[in-house]
């Protein structure tokens, strides 16, 4: 049995009261250093040492006054400014996209082609606005992106690139410029580190940070974030588990 005898003595109380007071007066936004565990001691010994300390202080003050060329005191340690020495690296698409043309090579792998492969010798049809307007190719595309038409983003003058609303040519790798035209608030959040996934360092003085590109998470033709099936759930004892567990092979991301 833990019989704990408590000896409440005066210095303990003082220390404790000091601690309590400093706890109470703690300012929440400041980085609060822990209050010293020492505190006021009022024993006879303490009084004696106080007297000695005072004497020492007076003596040293006198010496300080007598020594005009004493070395300057140590500079106060200032907070080290963290300079961003590393970059925020934004992931970029490797190249313009490759499209499956619907044929397989001798090994059975689908044959892909760049946009320009086909579109170089096809006249752009400005009347095409949606998938329904297409007579051949791309009819399997699911497009759910507001009221945008194909040529809102695709550059009919050069299919290996994209274009901004004012017609300026934009490389596929710089697609974020295109998105930002409409999605300004998201872009602002993104630039301030509040939108888009990231890995690496929060402190750019210590290491770089890698961020996703818009199209890493949002499919350009149907940008809503896909639905998912949670694969990890709390498994506490006695917790109600109404629903049977997900099979292990369950898909994680569901694109609809």
């Amino acid at each position: 049995m833990a019989l704990i005898v408590v000896i409440v003595e005066c210095p303990t109380q003082c220390r404790v009261v000091t601690k309590a007071l400093s706890d109470m007066s703690r300012n929440f936004s400041s980085s609060n250093p822990n209050p010293a565990r020492g505190g006021i001691r009022v024993t006879g010994f303490a009084r004696l040492s106080l007297v000695i300390l005072t004497l020492v202080a007076i003596t040293s003050l006198a010496f300080a006054a007598l020594a005009p060329f004493s070395s300057p005191s140590e500079p106060v340690a200032t907070e080290r400014k963290r300079e961003a020495r590393f970059a925020v690296e934004i992931h970029k698409p490797d190249s313009p996209p490759l499209v499956e043309i619907g044929l397989n090579d001798e090994n059975g792998n689908p044959i892909t082609a760049t946009c320009a492969t086909c579109h170089a010798n096809r006249e752009p049809d400005p009347s095409v606005r949606t998938v329904e307007d297409l007579k051949s190719f791309h009819r399997e595309l699911v497009i759910d992106h507001g009221k945008l038409s194909c040529f809102s983003c695709h550059n009919s003058a050069d299919y290996s690139s994209l274009k901004l609303a004012d017609g300026t040519r934009v490389e596929f790798t710089e697609v974020m410029q295109l998105c930002a035209q409409c999605h300004g608030p998201q872009m602002k959040d993104y630039e301030n580190g509040v939108h888009g996934g990231m890995v690496g360092h929060w402190d750019l003085s210590r290491g770089p940070q890698q961020k996703n590109n818009c199209v890493d998470c949002h499919r350009p033709h149907a940008p809503q974030f896909p639905r998912m099936i949670p694969t990890f759930k709390p498994d506490d004892r006695f917790l109600d588990k109404h629903v049977p567990p997900v099979p292990e092979s369950a898909p994680d991301l569901i694109h609809e």
Partner: peptide, 18 residues
């Protein structure tokens, strides 16, 4: 002590026992 009420309890229980 005195922040944690459990330390008060340790004191009062053992004190009461003694």
């Amino acid at each position: 002590w005195p922040m944690s009420m459990l330390t008060w309890d340790v004191i009062v229980l053992n004190g009461y026992l003694l």
